[in-house]
């Protein structure tokens, strides 16, 4: 079982859209896929029409062994299951802090599921915290959606520095998201960043209304608009991620 987190310090960069679409594509290709919605806003759960509610909240999730398995819900897509969000996840930092070895806790929670799933995608809340550190410890790959703006690039640099300082050794791969190629700033930032960051994915997700349509349609864009530009970009990105996880496996 391989775990991939969609994470960024900055909010509103397309983490959830990427997590939902990549998970959908992985499941469509035949992988037994689990999407863990760790963001208390519950957007990934919303997109997949799953009520963002965990019986007993985040505390019970951490306390009981195999609790994660009990929280799993099937999505409407074959092969894709979801651990829904809960508003109580906002307290997860405090609850993790009360436990021994908090950084290893999420990895331990996922361990009983390793025979049931091939891939886990974790949709994280924005910001650096103990939770994000624990996610990075539990993951094989951290995908960082990055809008091609100066501030986004700056937060990516902060994330990399933080991971290095904390000794979090998951592979961190940024990719550009919400790209408007008509904007000169976007083009310039991408050119400059790609030039100095070989780890940056060459695939980018264009800014498109189809992605916004995920809200009213409550479905991945790769399901309702598979021929659209963002859906095809997500396919390319998934192809790259799959190859990367495969090579590491």
């Amino acid at each position: 079982m391989k775990t991939t987190a969609l994470f960024s310090i900055k909010g509103g960069v397309g983490k959830t859209a990427a997590a939902v679409n990549l998970a959908h594509l992985a499941a469509r290709g035949g992988a037994r896929t689990l999407l863990w919605d760790l963001d208390p806003q519950g957007a990934a759960s919303f997109y997949l029409r799953i009520r963002p509610k965990l019986a007993g909240g985040s505390r019970r999730l951490l306390e009981r062994k195999n609790r994660l398995g009990e929280a799993i819900k099937a999505s409407d897509f074959t092969g894709l299951d979801v651990i829904p969000a809960d508003f109580s996840l906002r307290r997860l930092v405090l609850e993790l802090n009360d436990l021994d070895d908090p950084l290893a806790r999420l990895r331990r929670l996922l361990r009983p599921l390793r025979d049931d799933y091939d891939l886990v995608f974790v949709d994280c809340a924005p910001g650096v915290s103990l939770v994000s550190d624990a996610v990075m410890r539990a993951c094989d790959l951290v995908l960082v959606p990055t809008i091609p703006t100066t501030l986004s690039i700056r937060t990516y640099a902060q994330l990399v520095a933080h991971a290095r300082e904390k000794g979090l050794d998951a592979a961190i791969v940024p990719f550009f998201s919400m790209v408007d190629r008509r904007r000169r700033l976007h083009r310039d930032v991408m050119l400059e960043f790609a030039g100095r960051s070989p780890e940056c994915s060459r695939i980018f997700i264009p800014y498109a209304t189809e992605v916004e349509q995920m809200g009213p349609r409550r479905s991945p864009v790769t399901a309702f608009g598979p021929a659209s530009a963002p859906a095809r970009a997500f396919e390319q990105l998934w192809s790259q991620v799959a190859r990367r996880l495969g090579a590491d496996g």
């Binding site: 391989k2 594509l25 992985a26 290709g29 035949g30 992988a31 037994r32 799993i72 092969g79 299951d81 025979d115 049931d116 799933y117 091939d118 891939l119 550009f176 790209v179 190629r181 083009r187 991408m190 050119l191 790609a194 060459r202 695939i203 980018f204 264009p206 598979p226 659209s228 530009a229 095809r232 970009a233 396919e235 390319q236 998934w238 192809s239 799959a242 190859r243 996880l245 495969g246 090579a247 496996g249």
Partner: peptide, 30 residues
């Protein structure tokens, strides 16, 4: 800019490819 722009034009994305995720198990659905 070449590497990125080439990939990014919506119309010239490659056709969807079959992705073989190598470490995927042969196990049954959960």
């Amino acid at each position: 800019m070449r590497g990125i722009v080439d990939i990014g034009t919506g119309s010239c994305f490659a056709a969807p490819t079959r992705v073989d995720y190598a470490p995927m198990s042969r196990r049954s659905d959960p």
